[in-house]
Design a protein around this nucleic acid. Sequence first.
DNA 1: CATATTAATCGTAAAATTACGATTAATATA
DNA 2: TATATTAATCGTAATTTTACGATTAATATG
Lengths: 110, 110
Amino acid sequence: MKEAIQNDYSKSEILLAKFAKALGHPARIAIINLLIKKKSCICGSIVDELPIAQSTVSQHLKELKSAGLIKGNTTGVSVCYCIDEKNWALAQQLFSKQFEKNQPIINICC
Amino acid sequence: MKEAIQNDYSKSEILLAKFAKALGHPARIAIINLLIKKKSCICGSIVDELPIAQSTVSQHLKELKSAGLIKGNTTGVSVCYCIDEKNWALAQQLFSKQFEKNQPIINICC
DNA sequence: CATATTAATCGTAAAATTACGATTAATATA
DNA sequence: TATATTAATCGTAATTTTACGATTAATATG
């Protein structure tokens, strides 16, 4: 009768994939690294250091923000972006656990 | 004169993004988890446990393979997939370093 | 108040991703 | 040899991503 079909993905699989997806573009890794390096950073100076247009940077920032990895604070005409420490730590934990799951073994087949 | 424009992304940014992108879908996280759980795994049994078609699973396997996270070995009519230990360890290291980069501080703005 | 600056949004195009069913090639089995 | 099984590939459609320039809204400055 063949049952027990896993019909959906787990919460943690979805969340980890969400974080991974957000990190899945060199521009977004570069943005993250700029934010870390400068501690806090307005958008303009990010644009200056990336090989893409302002509107594209804005899109990437939006994606990082919607994944929860960064947050932004508007002061006057400029926006200060920085790492969302709480979610960053969560992502760190999820990735860490994910990689620790694998206990290297000698496989028969590959 | 405004110079010093970073014209490209670094090798490590590109590599990390590549690994992240490969992990950026729940189905691929689920596949990885199945491979870890069963140590080694033929494609058929993966299909049975995922809510997607065989051809779609095959596509996801191809992506994980091209990112280097898994490898496959054909024996007879079935294929044995498993974690690529070496690249898995590399990815682990890259992610680990990436998350360690951030030294939590109290920001003025956000 | 007029002008400049900043960063989001809009409109758009090209490319990539995701998914499916159907087909195919290769091997295994009756 | 004929049939079944496995997993990749093909063809295709829908959606998402990525990128750009132009525009807009908001604030700052002369």
